[in-house]
Structure formats: structure tokens, C-alpha cells
């Protein structure tokens, strides 16, 4: 990898100052950034390591909101009693990311800022209608993910936390993932949430960016049961197609994973 200057600020204010330079890049767990630097896919004048900023890490509940700090590692989300009580599906999702060693290091903020089309977390963020908080503003999930590795974040903007609605706002949720067995990324992953305002179905891995599967939402609004998705289809046009799965294959897998996610939400088992 190309060399860079390394900064390790202790405060968010200092990190903001160091990231004001567009040539500088924030480093969280580094599970995607460091491999991409090794491949020389990216080059940055400086990396600003967010790992020493205590206020960015940790999980807390504020009423009907679960707040996950940006640099909280996946293993911490997976193992958190607070998360298990508030949003068990989020705990299941975190436990299925990568492998145990990656989960000890990779962070929720890093994952969504990177916006890998096959990452798990974007489906939960969009499905649960979460809010991404930065040091400057709050961004609704619907406005956050813009495309392949592309988000609404401006240069210098740092994610500080993700706020997930929970409690009565989120009645039931489930996640099911058809994982690519070598990388353990989502070939497709589906996060289903039943809320007082209706069902939300968010799909990752299938398209350039996470999206809502509205036909499935309509079917599940009528009846929240896996069988409600019989006959529901997803148009393969525009879906990802690669060595691992064609677009048509992914379209089919999305419907199947949606069924499993509903089953999981209903406590009928399911898979991740």
C-alpha cells in the first residue's frame, strides 16, 4: 500500500479538523479500508483513526431508540444484552457478519460509510428506518445510501452513531441472509420489519445499493406470514450479476430469504 500520514485524535473535534482536508480519510475498524489500500485501489494523504475517540463507541437505549455508537464493533452488537432485548434481529445480523476475528474489529459506522453493496448492516439501517447521525446532522436511512460505495456523507463528515427505532415502534423484525460461503458477504440479505406504520422489507447484496422490496411489503401488509410471499416476484432487471450468482438467481433468492426473514420475525426459526 502507498504510505500515508497517520493521525489518532482523542476527540471528535480534532478528528473533524483533521478530516477537513479532502485528501484525508477516516479509519474505523479498517476491515474494508486496509485491504483496499493494500490493493492500491485507494490512496490517501492521511488516515484519521477514530479508534481512540471514546464518545463514538458503545450501545445505549434512549426510550424507544437503540443508539449504537459508530465505532462499536460487530461482536459487541452481537453480544449486547441491550440489543438482544430491543432488536434481536440486529443481534442476529451482527453475529453473521464476516467471521469472529472480523467482528472483533469491524464497526457499524465503518460498514455503512463504506456502503459495500453486499454488506449486512445497510439492510437493517434501511429496514428499521434508522437515522444516521454525524457530527453535523442527522440523515434518514432513505437518504443515506446512494449507490455502490456511495452515501450522502460529505467529505469530512464523520458518522457518530446510528439510531434504531425499537420498542413498540418496531413490533417484529427478522433477518435472513444467503451468504457467499467464501467471503461470508450477503449474496442476498433481507431484513423484514413489522411496524405500526406497516411492513418494511430491505434487501442488500442484490443490487448496487440496498433497496426496499415494495411488492413484498404490500403482500406482507395484508398478511404477515411467509406464505403471503408465494407468487411475489422481484424483477431481475438491474440486479447484480457476477461469478457467484446471476441476476435471475438473486431475484429468486431475495424472495426466499424474505420468507425466511418473516419466519424469523415470527419466531419460527429461519436462517442467517
Amino acid at each position: 500500500m502507498f504510505d500515508f500520514t497517520y493521525h489518532r485524535p482523542a476527540t471528535l473535534a480534532n478528528a473533524s479538523t483533521q478530516l477537513a482536508n479532502a485528501e484525508h480519510k477516516p479509519l474505523a475498524g479498517g476491515m474494508s479500508l486496509i485491504p483496499s489500500l493494500k490493493f492500491r485501489l485507494n490512496r490517501h494523504a492521511a488516515l484519521v483513526d477514530l479508534g481512540a475517540i471514546a464518545e463514538l463507541r458503545g450501545i445505549r437505549r434512549e426510550g424507544d431508540t437503540l443508539v449504537v455508537g459508530a465505532t462499536t464493533p460487530h461482536a459487541e452488537v452481537a453480544g449486547s444484552t441491550l440489543v438482544r432485548q430491543a432488536l434481536p434481529a440486529l443481534s442476529v445480523l451482527a453475529e453473521g457478519i464476516g467471521d469472529p476475528l472480523v467482528r472483533n474489529r469491524g464497526t457499524i459506522g465503518g460498514s455503512i460509510a463504506h456502503a459495500d453493496p453486499a454488506a449486512d448492516y445497510p439492510s437493517a439501517v434501511l429496514g428499521l428506518n434508522a437515522t444516521v447521525v454525524t457530527q453535523q446532522r442527522s440523515i434518514a436511512a432513505e437518504d443515506f445510501f446512494k449507490g455502490v460505495f456511495e452515501t450522502a456523507l460529505q467529505p469530512g463528515e464523520i458518522i457518530t452513531a446510528v439510531r434504531f427505532p425499537c420498542g413498540p415502534l418496531t413490533q417484529r423484525a427478522g433477518y435472513a441472509k444467503y451468504r457467499q460461503p467464501a467471503s461470508r458477504f450477503a449474496l442476498v440479505g433481507v431484513f423484514v420489519v413489522q411496524t405500526a406504520a406497516g411492513v418494511r422489507v430491505a434487501v442488500t447484496g442484490a443490487a448496487p445499493s440496498v433497496f426496499r422490496f415494495t411488492a413484498a411489503e404490500a403482500a406482507l401488509n395484508k398478511r404477515f406470514d411467509p406464505s403471503a410471499l408465494e407468487g411475489v416476484t422481484l424483477d431481475a432487471n438491474g440486479l447484480n450479476s457476477d461469478i457467484h450468482a446471476s441476476a435471475v438467481y438473486r431475484a429468486h433468492a431475495v424472495v426466499e430469504m424474505a420468507k425466511r426473514a418473516v419466519a424469523a420475525a415470527l419466531g419460527q426459526g429461519g436462517s442467517n
Binding site: I34, D49, L101, V102, R105
Partner: peptide, 29 residues
């Protein structure tokens, strides 16, 4: 592998297993 897949470089960082080929030395201050 040097691509953070094989786990041959696993060490314990503050008590947690991590792949040391995907961690900067300076992050371990």
C-alpha cells in the same frame, strides 16, 4: 493470504482475536 481471509496472522489485541495483517501498527499504541 495477506487479504484478511486466512487467519494465519491471528493475535490477541486487548484480549480479542484479530487479524494482524489488517491492523495498522500505529493503531495499537
Amino acid at each position: 493470504c495477506d487479504t484478511s481471509q486466512c487467519g494465519c496472522c491471528t493475535i490477541h489485541l486487548n484480549g480479542k482475536g484479530v487479524k494482524s495483517c489488517a491492523v495498522l501498527a500505529l493503531s495499537c499504541e
